[in-house]
Design a protein around this nucleic acid. Sequence first.
DNA 1: TGCCTAAGTGTATCTTTTACACTAACTTTG
DNA 2: CAAAGTTAGTGTAAAAGATACACTTAGGCA
Lengths: 229, 229
Amino acid sequence: MSVDCVIFGFDGVRLNVLIIEREQGGGVSALPGDLILDDETLDDSANRVLYELTGLSDIYLKQLQAFGDPDRIKDLRDVQWLRNVREEPSARVITIAYYSLVNLQNFSPKAASFARDVRWEPVYELGELAFDHNVIVDKALEQLRLNLKYDPLIGFELLPEKFTLRQLQKLYEAVLNHTIDKRNFRKKFLTAKLLKPLNEKEQGVPHKPAQYYEFDRKRYMRIKDKFWF
Amino acid sequence: MSVDCVIFGFDGVRLNVLIIEREQGGGVSALPGDLILDDETLDDSANRVLYELTGLSDIYLKQLQAFGDPDRIKDLRDVQWLRNVREEPSARVITIAYYSLVNLQNFSPKAASFARDVRWEPVYELGELAFDHNVIVDKALEQLRLNLKYDPLIGFELLPEKFTLRQLQKLYEAVLNHTIDKRNFRKKFLTAKLLKPLNEKEQGVPHKPAQYYEFDRKRYMRIKDKFWF
DNA sequence: TGCCTAAGTGTATCTTTTACACTAACTTTG
DNA sequence: CAAAGTTAGTGTAAAAGATACACTTAGGCA
């Protein structure tokens, strides 16, 4: 029983996923994950993996679903890796997948015990990952898109505290993978009144500086039901 | 590692959940579930539980999520039951919850090996269930509501092959737990063209007989993307 | 000073959602 | 066989929301 985390990060242009390279087993890329300890909840377990990897706690984390085909381990290198790492290498591996949203600004991934390298990879250009991790990423992305459409809150998890409307729109375009009309997008968010304008503008940009906003959590709490029903 | 199934059934008026009474352990009510066998996928496992209980296969079944608090077993009777039934009673119990939709018409539940009684209970009047099964049901209902709003297909899983618009509306009202305007409801479904009218009307009813419809699967396949994005 | 870039803004059209009340068809009862 | 009871079936107007679309402005840089 393990957890695997699909950790999404937005760099202002593209949507990325955090990928590790395994300590043992010939440079196979994989999602960060670990065995679940006996005395922790599933959520705790995912939070631990995340913390060991990013040093961040209290970030958005949600269970996706469990994956557990008996034959999800088909690649020889996966088998090899299990032999090195697990006490019972032949034991059935069921994993609970989580997806997580982090803000790239306050983030510096550090290799944890279970990884020899950590890096961001653009979600639309992922190579082949270990086990069924590509399938897990696809599912996570699907879920992220659904959530983003029906609950604007989660978009803000991927952005810094203060941001411009352009950044917000680029985020939506990266996740939904299509362009959006600028005026309509702005209209929607400004009439929803989810944004508080700050007394601050961009500086040093070679064009008209944009207004900074922050997310209005109080307002959101009052109207969020509307987004769901 | 086990699966537990939240099996929803609609009786024309209320939304019900299939509840079993355990063979051992003092008449505690619970969701149907079983341990996952070594060589089956998670989906297979849920299907097996469902088949043993209802005799039905090929019915709508979808993974909800995993539940696995170390202390989800708090009730003494739950502990007792585990002692009787499991080889390692103290082992951590993680369960993968599924939810399923069945049509009450072609259904006759029969007590399976793991149950001494099976019955339908209205979802809004459930008593206390074993473990964290009440939480699981709540989650399943939430998921069902979301799905119903964005994918009309799943509503039809709960109805017989042919049905009237009234039945369909009652189903929506039961799941969403609020009333819906009749004219607007009918308009929505009729303009979506998801229904094929049959050459058949209700018979023997003490009021104007209603038209029977069936679900137009071909049409649905062509337009379903619209419902999701 | 001119050029480049992204910010910021309004309107008209179309689509979707909502609110709302009467007639029609059948069975049962007196 | 007439009246009462019950659900089927139907349309329209108003409001809200979604879409398509183009120009001016503020700053940096050459």
